[in-house]
């Protein structure tokens, strides 16, 4: 019994000391280094326009108007809600999934005047995992270029060039997929760098 009590005492002491180290000292060290070396990233990669924060480079926001590029569909809350990140979690045979995607395909075709027979980029009509995916595929961005060009009275050529400057390649040449950040692209369209 005394030995058990001694073990309990050890466990309590170890718990307290470890809390101080791994829940106190460790995150504060990381916080200190992070705020010193990478303050922009550590604070959320927030975009500041004339003193007003208008979003994060890493977090998708909803764009519905025709003169903006549209992000991927989102299942985060009622859509693009960072307080409830997540995917749709519909299985591949879910009727709700199939119906929802069918509607998105029709809308995407109409909005972007896509000819029957041309296939739609998959990322344009499927919900992302986080609901906050700030990226779209290059194909998706290009399909939307003509619409945005018309709405803004620009030539499609100019828009395709814009997209090309926002194309992020694979990390280190091999990792991940090429992608275009919708938030940054739309900011650029509005004349903000």
């Amino acid at each position: 019994m005394i030995r058990i009590l001694k073990e309990v005492r050890s466990a309590v002491v170890a718990t307290i000391v470890l809390i101080v180290i791994v829940s106190g000292v460790y995150p504060v060290i990381v916080w200190g280094i992070a705020q010193g070396l990478f303050p922009f990233e550590a604070n959320g990669s927030l975009i500041n326009k004339n003193g007003i924060i208008i979003g994060s480079r890493l977090i998708a926001q909803n764009f519905t108007k025709i003169h903006y590029f549209h992000p991927r569909p989102s299942s985060a809350g009622t859509g693009y809600d960072p307080v409830s990140s997540g995917g749709s979690n519909f299985g591949p045979l879910s009727r709700t999934l199939v119906d929802t995607v069918r509607q998105r395909v029709m809308k995407y075709r109409t909005e972007n005047s896509i000819l029957p027979g041309t296939e739609i980029p998959a990322d344009a009509v499927t919900a992302s995992a986080s609901g906050l995916d700030p990226h779209i595929s290059l194909g998706n961005a290009r399909q939307q270029a003509a619409r945005v060009a018309r709405a803004r009275g620009l030539s499609e050529e100019v828009l395709l060039q814009k997209i090309a400057t926002h194309l992020e390649g694979r990390d280190m040449g091999i990792l991940g997929e090429p992608r275009v950040n919708v938030v940054l692209l739309n900011l650029d369209m509005d004349g903000n760098k």
Binding site: G87, P92, L97, A127, A129, S130, G176, E177
Partner: peptide, 10 residues
């Protein structure tokens, strides 16, 4: 691009 439902573009 395969099954993109519930996946991130990057």
């Amino acid at each position: 691009t395969g099954n993109m439902e519930g996946k991130e573009v990057r």
